[in-house]
Computed example of a mutant assay.
Amino acid sequence: MDRGAVDQSWTCAEQRAWVLTKRALGYDPGDLLALEAGLDTAEAAIDRQHLWLPASRVLALAAWRASRELDVQVDDLPLSRCLWWLGGARFGESFAAPLPPWTPAMPGGWQQLQARIDDLRWIATWHCLAHVQETRKVAGSADGTSTLPLLIGDRVRAVLAGPCRDQTPPRWSAATDFAQEAIASARQALSGR
């Protein structure tokens, strides 16, 4: 695998892992309500630097390793395969060379992350369990729901389309409410002719 492909797959793994980490923590940097409410405090910034970014980096490393092992794109990787690298069959090889480049968004290095792996590997497990919970109602039904493994790309798309916190409406619900109202209004206007 050439250096450009390694960098591209690592960048993809980092981006996907950050989306999954933010969802597991209920954090969305685009959540204007939280910013306006003053919830993005100095303490939250410290948490991002010392917990969220390292947890995301560990998940990205597991996704990067697993995608290289299976020779698939990160988006096409079963999320459960990351668990092999986070404490399962391949755990001992997680921090072996070659490692992807360390980006300066976070202080430290791979050795510091390896020392904290027990505190940081829960994000992938959280998403696997959340997916089971979210799809339990349709499991085994004949509605066309896929029984294929949960792919990272599918989970990321589901997270981006859904709420950033549990028990809140999806981000796109206001747009669909508006569209439904416009359609209902148009139908009423047409039926009144």
Rank of each mutant, 00 (worst) to 15 (best):
M1R: 02
D2N: 15
A5N: 07
A5V: 01
V6A: 09
Q8W: 12
S9D: 13
T11C: 13
C12I: 13
A13I: 08
A17R: 04
A24L: 12
L25D: 09
G26A: 12
D28R: 05
G30S: 04
L33H: 05
A34S: 11
L35D: 15
A37E: 09
G38W: 00
E43A: 14
A44W: 14
A45N: 02
R48N: 04
R48Y: 11
H50Q: 12
A55E: 08
A55N: 01
S56E: 03
R57E: 09
V58Q: 10
W64N: 05
R65P: 08
R65A: 05
S67P: 06
D71E: 08
Q73Y: 10
Q73S: 10
L79F: 03
L79R: 05
L79A: 08
L86E: 00
G87F: 09
G88P: 00
F91T: 03
A97I: 06
A97G: 03
W102F: 07
W102T: 00
G108L: 04
G108V: 01
G109W: 04
W110Y: 05
W110G: 04
Q111C: 11
L120H: 10
R121K: 11
W122N: 13
A124S: 05
C128R: 01
L129W: 08
L129Q: 12
H131M: 00
R136E: 08
G140D: 06
T147R: 10
T147Y: 05
P149Y: 04
V159E: 06
P163R: 07
C164E: 06
C164G: 13
C164R: 12
D166H: 12
T168P: 13
P170M: 01
A179E: 09
A179V: 13
A184G: 14
A189W: 12
S191D: 11
R193A: 12
R193V: 09
